[in-house]
């Protein structure tokens, strides 16, 4: 069993971040909160990597600073974590872009409302009258019909025009 040293605290923190992040991703019902939970989990994993190279009492792996005979920490995990952080940033930026687009199309990031609106979308595209009770919060208007070419999956890798947005988009803002 370990006593509560610095690395013990960091380790518990790292594991805690991963678990909290995983839990947050699983149970939150708002897409942006899911993304934030993911960021937490990624930080936990990054901490774990840095910790894997930590050496008690050693210095940073840069020559020309401090005592040249002192031991240095393992530099490899520091490189790995740099790579992992940059990868994480890229993925998160892309996720934000996706969320912006989703919000622009559906006007919500709440998972339940989103599902209702997507169902209504499909019903409209199929030419079926969407059941009024399907449309989320009472008092809100059903979605305007989405032009067919926006909701029918474009088959191939083909060219596509700019994606049209429902003209009343600002009315649907909560």
């Amino acid at each position: 069993m370990m006593s509560l040293t610095l690395e013990g605290v960091v380790l518990i923190g790292a594991l805690g971040l991963i678990v909290i992040g995983a839990l947050g991703m699983a149970i939150s019902n708002h897409l942006f909160r899911m993304l934030l939970a993911l960021v937490l989990a990624e930080s936990g994993a990054n901490l774990l990597i840095v910790l894997s190279g930590y050496r008690v009492g050693a210095s940073a792996p840069i020559l020309g600073f401090g005592d040249p005979t002192a031991p240095m920490v393992d530099p490899v995990p520091q490189v790995l974590v740099l790579t992992a952080i940059v990868i994480g940033v890229g993925v998160q930026a892309l996720a934000v872009a996706l969320l912006l687009k989703v919000y622009r199309v559906y006007g919500t990031l709440n998972v339940r409302e989103l599902r209702d609106r997507m169902d209504a979308d499909v019903a409209t595209a199929a030419g079926v009258e969407a059941d009024a009770s399907q449309d989320a919060p009472a008092g809100e208007r059903p979605l305007p019909p989405v032009p067919a070419h926006a909701s029918v999956g474009s088959g191939g890798f083909g060219r596509r025009g700019p994606v049209p947005f429902p003209p009343q988009s600002d009315e649907r803002r909560p």
């Binding site: 370990m2 040293t5 690395e7 013990g8 380790l11 910790l51 894997s52 190279g53 930590y54 050496r55 008690v56 792996p61 840069i62 020559l63 020309g64 240095m72 393992d74 530099p75 490899v76 520091q78 490189v79 740099l82």
Partner: peptide, 28 residues
């Protein structure tokens, strides 16, 4: 924890200054 095996790490610490020549070994 705190005493990593450093199989690759210590070898790189030893040879990197001569092979690559960067003072910042992380960059190397």
């Amino acid at each position: 924890f705190g005493t990593p095996p450093m199989r690759v790490g210590s070898e790189i610490l030893a040879v990197a200054p001569g092979e690559v020549g960067a003072a910042n070994l992380v960059t190397a």
